[in-house]
């Protein structure tokens, strides 16, 4: 009886304290969070709002959707969007390559560290450096063609960056070269963290390399594979400026063969001095990224729920 009453008193105190505690706690949280929040509000909040406002104006006047209409009917912007879309085709290539390399590394004992470091190195190198060095390798008389000729494959030698038909493909090969290591590291880290028993049944059954990994590893690390796919999709849509800018000397050439939306925005704003059009194009790009992101959170939430239900 005594025990029960003291318990209920404790509960009572607890209930009564709760609101004040919560109030104090959110005020304290504010104190810790405010400095970072101010910087983020300034950099993101201010910018996104200004871009939105600017995309509806011209020379200080409100022009409705005119800027959007101009941008979306500009063949150059459409070309740029198409190229971003084509670059998305590199994402499945990246996923397959990274997965293959991750499981291969996982099965390898001797020399695994060396191979892992080597495969990851490109991801660390600065994109401007990578772009310049590959620019030299892909020259008409550059290292790649010298190599192809020396092994008798003269017919494969091409003007890799000068031919508008293949320039974008060449560019995406550089992006793949650089980005694949990131996927390998992500997936390998996840595979290593899987519990040992995961593979026991397969080992007893004597399942082969591919069967084991396609039917056990792939579903087990699906979250990570999706995460990587989305990050790379976002990269292809909104983070390829550095490659294109350096490899085409800021022009998106030859012709417009490597024009992408970021470069279009950059050039509209700073070379054509049309910040309103650039703002409208930026809003389009922002929406495209938002769509990718929402898709990502949908998929991720589902897969997280899946792990809890299992």
């Amino acid at each position: 009886m005594k025990l029960a009453s003291s318990k209920s008193v404790a509960a009572d105190v607890h209930i009564r304290q709760r609101p004040t505690l919560a109030g104090r706690s959110s005020r304290e949280a504010l104190f810790w969070i405010a400095p970072a929040a101010l910087v983020i509000l300034f950099i993101f909040g201010y910018s996104v709002v200004s871009v939105l406002i600017q995309s509806f104006r011209y020379d200080g006047d409100w022009v409705g959707f005119e800027n959007f209409a101009i941008v979306i009917t500009d063949p150059l912007f459409l070309t740029a969007l198409k190229h971003n879309g084509l670059l998305l085709l590199a994402v499945p290539v990246l996923i397959v390559l990274a997965f293959t390399l991750a499981i291969t590394l996982f099965e390898t004992r001797a020399g695994m560290r060396f191979y892992r470091s080597a495969i990851f190195l490109p991801y660390v190198l600065p994109i401007p450096v990578v772009a310049v060095v590959f620019g030299q390798i892909y020259q008409l008389h550059g290292a790649l063609n010298i190599f192809l000729k020396s092994v008798g494959l003269d017919s494969l030698a091409k003007d890799w960056l000068g031919d508008p038909q293949i320039a974008l493909g060449t560019m995406s090969s550089v992006i793949i070269w650089k980005e694949v290591g990131f996927g390998v590291i992500l997936m390998l880290a996840h595979i290593i963290s899987l519990p040992n028993e995961t593979y026991e049944a397969a080992r007893i059954d004597g399942a082969g390399f591919w069967r084991t990994h396609l039917s056990i590893t792939r579903p087990a690390i699906l979250n990570t594979i999706i995460f990587y796919g989305v990050i790379e999709a976002i990269t292809m849509v909104s983070w390829v400026f550095n490659y294109v800018y350096v490899m085409s000397n800021g022009l998106g050439g030859p012709g417009n063969a490597t024009m992408v939306s970021e470069l279009y925005i950059y050039r509209s704003a700073f070379q054509n001095k049309a910040p309103e059009l650039a703002a409208a194009a930026a809003v389009f790009l922002f929406i495209a990224t938002l769509v990718l992101m929402i898709a990502f959170f949908r998929i991720q939430r589902r897969s997280i729920a899946g792990t809890f239900n299992r």
Binding site: V51, Q54, I234, S238, E262, A269, P275, V283, L285, T289
Partner: peptide
């Protein structure tokens, strides 16, 4: 994941 190019114009101005 906000593309930096979106922030570029207002911050530059």
């Amino acid at each position: 994941v906000v593309p930096p190019v979106v922030l570029l114009i207002p911050l530059f101005q």
